[in-house]
Computed example of a mutant assay.
Amino acid sequence: MSTEDTTQLRVGRLTKPHGLKGALKLELFTDTPETRFVPGAEFTLQVPETSEWHGKTLTLAELRWYNGHPVGFFEGVLDRTGAESLVKAILWVDQDLTELPDEDDAWYHHQLIGLRVERDGVPVGTVARIDHLPAQDLLAVATPSGEVLVPFVSVLVPSVDIEAGVVVVTPPAGLFEELVDADTDGPTDGDANTTDEV
């Protein structure tokens, strides 16, 4: 497979050592750790250039769960000192661009970046990136007046059409201020779409 057919996906971050035998707690950026974090899985590391791990890869020996938290054991990381040298490292994997996620209503980042974002059939911007937060993901939309962050939940992002290149958003009134101002001659979006569930 050529490099043109693959992209790099961020799948996790090493947060802190666990125990004395080189294990590290993980923050997962994937919904399918059972397929991403299998023994022998190899990760490209994002670390500072000054790190001894810069330019190296890390191979998983085992993934365990302790009190609901994932903990990784990696080849060549044998003690707590070694684990401490990897704290804050971000793990990346190669992903085949032709493959889709196994779960429904799921997309890889590279599929979303650059898609046109529409509200009520009117283009409002393009997808700049997806931010991962503990509570939920945020869709960063680049608009002519600046960046708007939309919670990536179905009630606010009801439709993603990869083939058409369109993401439909139904944000609450005020999130895209320039559109709210443009609607002052008629019923506002808030009047038309008021909901107690948002």
Results as ranks from 00 to 15, higher is better:
50 T>F: 01
126 T>W: 04
198 V>Q: 06
72 G>H: 06
190 G>Y: 09
189 D>P: 04
129 R>H: 14
184 T>Y: 15
83 A>G: 08
68 G>M: 03
7 T>C: 04
125 G>E: 08
159 S>C: 06
60 L>P: 00
175 L>R: 08
157 V>N: 01
171 P>G: 03
95 Q>A: 14
192 A>E: 15
193 N>C: 02
148 V>L: 05
159 S>Q: 14
71 V>A: 06
162 I>Q: 03
168 V>I: 09
165 G>S: 05
108 Y>A: 07
126 T>S: 10
49 E>Q: 07
150 V>Q: 01
142 A>N: 13
77 V>W: 02
85 S>F: 08
52 E>N: 09
184 T>W: 15
57 T>W: 07
146 G>F: 14
95 Q>L: 11
14 L>M: 15
167 V>M: 01
96 D>H: 12
139 L>D: 03
100 L>G: 02
14 L>Y: 06
122 V>K: 11
27 E>F: 13
155 V>F: 14
19 G>W: 02
30 T>N: 07
71 V>F: 03
141 V>S: 01
36 R>L: 14
13 R>C: 10
56 K>Y: 01
148 V>G: 01
79 D>A: 05
81 T>K: 10
51 S>W: 04
74 F>M: 04
122 V>T: 11
97 L>D: 04
21 K>T: 13
35 T>M: 11
120 D>V: 07
154 S>Q: 12
68 G>R: 02
171 P>Y: 05
25 K>P: 00
120 D>K: 10
186 G>Q: 14
44 T>A: 11
187 P>R: 15
34 E>D: 15
175 L>W: 10
54 H>R: 01
68 G>P: 00
6 T>L: 13
82 G>C: 10
117 V>R: 00
137 D>S: 13
81 T>V: 13
103 E>F: 11
8 Q>F: 15
49 E>P: 00
176 F>M: 04
49 E>T: 07
8 Q>Y: 14
90 I>C: 03
118 E>A: 10
125 G>S: 05
112 L>F: 09
48 P>Y: 10
107 W>V: 02
141 V>D: 02
187 P>N: 14
81 T>N: 07
140 A>M: 13
162 I>T: 06
29 F>W: 15
88 K>C: 12
52 E>A: 12
2 S>N: 12
164 A>H: 02
87 V>R: 03
172 P>N: 06
118 E>N: 08
11 V>Y: 05
33 P>F: 13
166 V>N: 01
180 V>R: 11
192 A>G: 10
36 R>I: 15
69 H>F: 10
66 Y>M: 01
170 T>P: 00
17 P>L: 11
106 A>K: 06
79 D>S: 06
116 R>S: 07
19 G>S: 03
95 Q>K: 09
104 D>K: 09
115 L>H: 00
66 Y>R: 05
111 Q>M: 08
28 L>H: 07
148 V>A: 04
121 G>V: 09
46 Q>C: 11
111 Q>C: 02
146 G>R: 09
135 A>Y: 11
33 P>R: 04
6 T>H: 09
190 G>N: 05
92 W>S: 10
45 L>N: 04
174 G>L: 05
87 V>K: 06
173 A>P: 02
150 V>G: 00
59 T>W: 03
184 T>I: 15
136 Q>G: 00
32 T>C: 09
7 T>F: 14
49 E>I: 05
38 V>T: 08
39 P>N: 07
4 E>C: 08
148 V>I: 13
1 M>G: 15
63 L>A: 06
85 S>K: 13
